[in-house]
Design a binder for these strands. Structure first.
Length: 828
DNA sequence: AGCACGCCGACT
DNA sequence: GTCGGCGTGCTC
């Protein structure tokens, strides 16, 4: 420094560590060119070249001055943002997520940023006009692009590729950039385009009432146009007010051509205006009057919540359906906003955000924004900005809303905490929004409310152990009645010959009654397929999976024996492969069989089925639900799926078939699901004065858990559930780690999965509680083979597990580079 | 993720 | 003899 004063200012921060939007294990370092020094700041996006030809917008993580000795860093090409788009808290959150869910920071970044903020092949290039005056030697293709750009202003990288009909187009663009022919479009940094709408105004000439009358008469001949005009008059507050054209069209039901005719007649003036997307959603929801008053029970629950929050960061609000949790949320949000902080309201599914938004909008108006993946990128970009600026104080959203750039978050509400759609599955990070919310709240020193009528086992456990506060709201509005619960002893019934296949006489009778009353029925059976187990009557042989030590389930619809763990399937055999006997016994029954037999017993009843097997295609799930909700189906037979996303308003009967299997290992969730079903049905039917009915068919009617259900003692039921699992040395608080192995070659994959499993086993030793289950499912044309590791979640366990698993992963990756390995951490 | 390189079998 | 598939390695 003393000897080279010139280098003094070069000595300052020269390199930037950036996160690339890829699944790369580490961050990469780029040189900050002199021209950009000072502009490169953590949290801003920069355009960088990565590899030979690819351009990415990367996110600056930190600035360093240490010269990387192992490689020659490339330069940052451009800074894309004037201000950081990601703040420090977010970075901490990302870091945690990457480490907790064992994925790369790039993958977290991909999940976190709305599409408008991450760009890759959509990168736009524009012509540098100055370059036209210069003499530059260009290749044929380069000249072509230059030519096209003279006419077309902007081209995306993809456009260029299709224009030249080739894939490797980046070097060409790089060369064009180097030669100064093009530059990266500013649009790249713009992020989003504002939304516009056409607004209508009545020509001021018609302010005069006489003139207006004339106009009405004139339009007698054009009734549609008159309709449009009348609608406008109704919608406009003043005679010359501006009204969105779309509103007029929708309200009056006329086509836009009709309105266009009125514009041409100069009855209306049209103007294109920029509209805020947030405001667009606000229209139509005028603020409703005052806050509803608390009931005494709500008042009590509210004060308990406040008290609990003084000593704890999170509270479980355990309130039965329709007990008025929302009002308590609203009050807590109000207080949070009054303190000048932001609040986040998480909902498990986009579908139910609508009604909740309405309610919250009435209270919080335009301080509120809705954020989920159904919104287009531009809208999401706008909300991102508003949250960052603090203009938007309350966000209602699905799990992706966790990633918004909150400045000072004071409260997170996780509603319907038990819903498993809070868990992200396919692309990494495979995060659980509830767990992540708790961590995020910790970073902000914010408070978390977990709300549910039927809390998940793990949350209930945490609350009963004192980790979270616990507030109950057991009373319902209008003293709603619980459903009548009837236990049918199937052994006794069958001895009395009162059963028809798997149905008790009572259940069949009740189904018939419900259908007659035009009510609907849900039948819950936690086994899919036709028969879960076949056995040779002569020698006792049971067809089993080659990979997994479980019996194969017979599926009649596909005529196959299928392994429900790994997906292996084979043709059913006419005779026993062990002894040749033709007498194969069918043991047990699945949803397919329930559906089949019910169709025979009650041919006039419309029956539909909802389970994994018939919802494989994209819309099938929604289609079946819609048909049920529209009343096209009387009885819905299904697995745990029936507890999700259903509107129960017309359901007055739930049948739980073979309740015994619900208590048995290894059905972690089955009982929970059937309980949810009961609670929900009772909640909904309770709103209307009538009482729903639940019929539990079991062979062990004296079972303590069934007794608890009959007493409707939810807490006791859960405690006993926890106790029971402990007795089995099978704690309820597991961590399931799934390792996804992806490869195109199935045999190769099977082999690697086996070797990975044995590697894990040798490292984990006794910590592997469950079997290693290879699970193969077809994902696009890749195969996914999972290794499940169940681990006791003691205090030190997770970090230890991760340490060991980390070693296994590294070893495996080092040995088989072509194998894609990803890890999924489940809450239970 | 993409892309290049090198190794194999299968073709004009 | 080359073409092209697939496994492997690498990208600041």
């Amino acid at each position: 420094m003393d000897h080279a004063p010139i280098s003094a200012d070069r000595e300052v921060k020269l390199f930037a560590e950036v996160i690339l939007p890829l699944a790369l294990p580490v961050n990469y370092t780029y040189r900050i060119p002199d021209s950009l020094s000072g502009k490169v700041v953590p949290g801003k996006r920069v355009a960088v070249q990565f590899g030979k030809s690819r351009l990415y917008s990367a996110l600056v993580r930190r600035i360093t001055d240490s010269f990387p000795s192992r490689y020659a860093p490339k330069e940052i090409l451009e800074v894309l943002d004037d201000e950081p788009i990601v703040n420090d808290v977010q970075f901490s959150f990302w870091d945690w997520m990457a480490s907790y869910y064992m994925c790369s920071k790039g993958e977290v970044m991909m999940a976190a940023l709305p599409a408008s903020l991450k760009l890759s092949s959509q990168t736009q290039i524009v012509l540098n006009r100055d370059s036209l005056e210069r003499e530059v030697t260009l290749s044929e293709n380069e000249a072509l692009i230059q030519q096209v750009l003279q006419q077309q202003q902007v081209l995306s990288v993809r456009d260029v590729a299709s224009l030249l009909n080739r894939k490797t187009v980046m070097p060409l663009i790089k060369s064009l950039l180097d030669k100064g022919i093009v530059y990266v479009s500013e649009q790249l940094s713009q992020g989003y385009r504002p939304r516009t709408a056409v607004y209508l105004q009545l020509d001021p000439a018609y302010r005069d009432t006489e003139k207006l009358k004339e106009l009405y008469q004139l339009l007698e001949k054009a009734p549609r146009q008159l309709d449009a005009l009348m609608t406008y008059m109704r919608l406009a507050k003043h005679r010359t007010g501006w009204v969105p054209k779309k509103d007029v069209a929708e309200e009056s039901g006329v086509s836009s051509g009709v309105i266009q005719a009125l514009i041409e007649k100069e009855v209306f003036h049209a103007e294109i205006r920029e509209v805020s997307r947030l405001a667009a959603h606000e229209t139509g929801f005028p603020p409703e009057g005052n806050a509803q008053a608390f009931s005494p029970a709500q008042e009590r629950a509210y004060h308990q919540t406040r008290t609990q929050l003084q000593s704890r960061d999170a509270v479980l609000l355990h309130g039965v359906t329709a007990s008025g949790k929302t009002l308590i949320y609203i009050k807590l949000i109000e207080e949070c906003l009054e303190k000048g902080q932001q609040a986040l309201y998480l909902l498990p599914e986009i579908a139910i955000t609508e009604q909740m938004t309405r309610r919250l909008r009435a209270r919080f108006g335009n301080q509120l924004a809705v954020y989920h993946s159904r919104f287009n990128d531009n809208e999401r970009g706008e909300i991102w900005k508003k949250v960052s600026q603090g203009t938007c104080r309350l966000v209602v959203g699905a799990r992706s809303a966790l990633f918004l750039p909150f400045q000072k978050l004071g409260l997170i509400i996780v509603d319907e905490e038990h819903e498993n759609s809070y868990k992200q599955f396919d692309p990494a990070p495979r995060y659980h929004a509830r767990d992540s919310a708790l961590y995020l709240a910790g970073l902000h020193r914010a408070q978390t409310i977990l709300g549910s009528a039927t809390p998940s086992l793990e949350t209930f456990y945490n609350a009963s152990e004192g980790k979270y506060g616990l507030v109950k709201l057991p009373q319902r509005y209008g003293d709603v009645m619980l459903p009548e619960t009837v236990v049918v002893d199937m052994l006794r019934e069958s001895r009395k010959k009162a059963t028809h296949s798997h149905f008790s006489g009572l259940l069949l009778e009740e189904i018939r009654k419900s259908v007659e009353q035009r009510k609907q029925v849900i039948l819950f059976r936690n086994r899919r397929g036709y028969v879960p187990l076949l056995q040779c009557h002569t020698c006792g042989y049971i067809p089993q999976c080659l990979n997994c030590d479980i019996s194969l389930t017979y599926h009649r619809s596909s005529e196959k024996l299928v392994c429900h763990y790994c997906g292996y399937s084979e043709k059913p055999l006419a005779s026993c492969p062990a002894c040749g006997s033709h007498h194969m016994e069918q043991k047990g029954f699945g949803t397919e069989k329930v559906e089949d037999e019910l169709k025979i017993l009650l041919p006039e009843v419309r029956i539909s089925r909802l389970d994994l097997d018939n919802t494989r295609s994209k819309n099938a799930f929604q289609q079946i639900l819609n048909d049920f909700e529209d009343g096209k189906v009387d009885v819905l037979v299904g697995t745990q799926m029936v507890t999700k996303g259903l509107d129960f308003h017309n359901v007055n009967l739930v049948g739980i078939l073979d309740a015994d299997s619900l208590f048995r290992y290894p059905d972690f969730r089955s009982f929970e699901r059937s309980y949810q079903l009961m609670v929900q049905v009772s909640g909904r039917s309770g709103r209307r004065t009538e009482r729903g009915k639940v019929i539990i068919q079991t062979t062990s009617p004296g079972h303590p858990i069934i007794d608890l259900v009959l007493q409707n003692d939810y807490d006791a039921f859960y405690r006993s559930e926890i106790e029971e699992r402990r007795q089995f040395s099978y704690p309820p608080f597991f961590r399931l780690i799934t390792v996804h192995l992806k490869h195109k070659n199935e045999e190769y994959l099977a082999e690697k999965a086996a070797s990975f499993a044995s590697l894990v086993k040798s490292r984990f030793g006794s910590r592997v509680l469950g079997p290693q289950i290879p699970l193969v499912s077809r994902v696009r044309n890749l195969y996914l083979r999972n290794v499940l590791i169940k681990i006791d979640r003691e205090k030190d366990s997770l970090s230890k597990v991760k340490e060991i698993l980390g070693v296994c992963l590294t070893e495996m990756r080092a040995r088989h580079k072509s194998l894609l390995i990803q890890v999924d951490v489940d809450p239970l």
